[in-house]
Design a protein around this nucleic acid. Structure first.
Length: 558
RNA sequence: GCCCCGAUAGCUCAAUUGGAUAGAGCAACGGUCUUCUAAACCGUAGGCUACAGGUUCGAUUCCUGUUCGGGGUACCA
């Protein structure tokens, strides 16, 4: 009961995180001293020997104040004394860092709050009332999704989940084109297979698709339409193939727990005249010219590398024009933020789109383009080459068959999107301790089991626990990791890089596993058991929350 | 040629966006189950952060070159 009162007392003060609280107090002290506000940091030091929080402010002030950093630090530390809630001692260490050491009770007090707020622990809903569109995958329906698409799918969906957690109203969107040369090639490839089924020795067209899925589609077509269709029905073949492939694409995504809200078809932009409208407007504003029978956009005038062709001399638009029209539509649809997740092969195309949008008078600062590097697949250290056309690839589906959806999702997320992802099939396939996914899930299963076990031992309720009993080093370390959650989520939001969450959860699981091996939760000491059960209940909430944000399941048994 | 991204332990990658002694996993070696799950924990070993300069209190991080990988540089998408 003693702690319950203390907790309520602290509650109002805990609306800020540790780091923000320190920053606020620091700013107040600067004002009192009449010093300028430098660009300083308050962070969790890597090494716990340097306290629970640390600031470099003294070093950043050294130059303008013309004083030794340690000297400045000492003065600030003296001023801050007893003013930051939860801080026991403040030290001046190293070249002039100010280090803050918190009391155990500060950390203990977070447990009731986590248990009350659950998944929304420390969520400040910064995105409330704002809409965001996340475009990802956007593969044209020419074949099943590959391992490369998989990375984008998981990245995009995890980013969407992180935005949702912050309160954003998220639209997951898939942009595709089922017209054009590649689709005609697809139709012709299916047609060739289809003819062969009727005994004709028809060759696959030059540059056509050769995968086994083509044969499957031809067979389905044969079953539905019979064997006497001719190439005059090519559009029928195209439509049939596109539909079938789209079906497999959405099925693959659903296996990873990914569902798009909107499927935006490029053809609609032609049908409803949006493409003509964009072209006309660029023309009236004087941003295009004609050369060699083609229509060119003066991209150079807007900072792009060189001018680009929008309409070929054949009268057919290049891919750029619909891209511009589509992005313009996104802006007009009124999203507060637009996130484009693209493969690194798109990095050259986006500046042109942005240039055109600016030429049309749009503010493009709402658009964030995230480029991710490619995935290389290795098996026993050897690279596997991938090509959709040649069908020399491992499909996303095959990968999920092999490793399971949780492993697939985690592997795609655990590396930063800016670096190449080396997907080791052999490792992903291992259902053993070599596989980091199980490390996280095992932690969750262990937590669950402890809670079950406590009931079996006759501890019906642990609500009246005395949390001041939680004071061992490993337990405080675990608590520290727990309250880091909000900072990590903030980092994920500002960087749109879900890897940070994956790394954090790994650290959290480690802190838990260490604790688990050293301190038994359910013992003969009922009071101590109750306190630790509250702790476990709280960690479980955070871990489960994080795993769900990455779309990874939280098993209760393993 | 030009543009973008990358280069960190044997391998795959981190490093709180400029901070203190550069950290994990895997692989190697050694130790820990009568206990709530050993899919765990502890320890040992492993580094001139590709190279050369520069910027400052301080650089894996920023700037300039060089080397090596990947991508782009279409009237292909």
């Amino acid at each position: 009961m003693r702690v319950a009162v203390a907790t309520r007392f602290f509650m109002g003060l805990f609306e800020e995180t540790m780091l923000k609280e320190i920053r606020n107090k620091m700013n107040a002290v600067l004002d009192e001293l009449g010093w300028e506000h430098p660009d300083f940091q308050v962070e969790r030091p890597r090494d716990r020997a340097f306290g629970h929080a640390s600031s470099n402010i003294a070093m950043t002030l050294a130059k303008t104040l013309r004083r030794a950093p340690r000297d400045i630090a000492a003065e600030l530390a003296e001023k801050l004394k007893d003013r930051v809630p939860g801080v026991e001692t403040i030290g001046v260490e190293g070249p002039g860092f100010i280090n803050f050491y918190y009391s155990a009770s500060y950390f203990q007090a977070f447990i009731p709050r986590i248990r009350r707020e659950k998944q929304r622990f420390q969520c400040e809903f910064s995105g409330k009332g704002k809409t965001v569109q996340v475009e990802f995958v956007s593969a044209n329906p020419t074949g099943p999704l590959t391992i490369g698409h998989g990375r984008q799918a998981v990245l995009g969906d995890s980013i969407a989940r992180i935005l949702e957690w912050h309160g954003y109203d998220v639209t997951r969107e898939y942009y595709f084109n089922d017209a054009g040369r590649q689709m005609r090639m697809l139709g012709a490839s299916v047609y060739a297979r289809y003819r062969r089924m009727s005994g004709d020795d028809m060759p696959i067209p030059e540059g056509g698709y050769e995968g086994e899925y083509i044969t499957d589609i031809a067979r389905q077509f044969h079953e539905e339409y019979g064997g006497d269709r001719t190439d005059e029905d090519l559009q029928v073949f195209i439509d049939f193939a596109a539909k079938a492939i789209f079906h497999t694409i959405t099925a693959s995504l659903r296996r990873l727990n990914i569902v798009h809200d909107v499927y935006y078809n490029e053809r609609d932009l032609y049908r409803n005249g949006k493409i003509d409208a964009v072209l006309k407007e660029l023309e009236t504003k004087g941003h295009v010219y004609r050369k060699d029978g083609a229509v060119w956009f003066k991209a150079e005038a807007f900072g792009a590398e060189k001018d680009r062709v929008l309409v070929k001399s054949s009268g057919e638009p290049t891919y750029r024009l619909p891209d511009i029209a589509y992005h313009r539509e996104k802006l007009l649809r009124g999203f507060d933020m637009i996130v484009d997740v693209f493969g690194s092969d798109h990095h050259a195309t986006y500046p042109d789109v942005r240039a055109a949008l600016e030429a049309l008078g749009h503010d493009t600062s709402r658009i964030r383009v995230l480029l991710h590097q490619f995935v290389t697949l290795t098996r026993a250290g050897r690279k596997i080459k991938m090509s959709t056309r040649k069908a020399e690839f491992v499909t996303l589906d095959e990968l999920i068959d092999l490793a399971g959806p949780d492993v697939v999702r985690y592997f795609y997320i655990m590396r930063s999107m800016g670096s190449h992802l080396n997907f080791d099939i052999a490792l992903a396939q291992k259902q053993s301790d070599e596989n980091p996914v199980f490390y996280l899930q095992y932690a969750h299963a262990r937590m669950h089991n402890i809670l079950v076990h406590s009931r079996e031992k006759g501890i019906a309720s642990y609500e009246d626990a005395d949390l001041s009993l939680l004071k061992e080093d490993e337990i405080i370390a675990l608590l520290e990791h727990m309250i880091e959650f909000r900072d990590v989520m903030y980092l994920c939001l500002s960087s749109l890089e879900p890897m940070h969450l994956a790394n954090y959860l790994y650290r959290l699981a480690t802190a838990f596993h260490k604790c688990y091996t050293v301190h038994r939760v359910v013992t003969e000491d009922i009071e101590l058991s109750k306190a630790r059960l509250q702790l476990i209940d709280a960690v479980k909430i955070i871990l489960a929350n994080g795993l769900q944000l990455l779309g990874i399941r939280t098993p209760e048994k393993m």
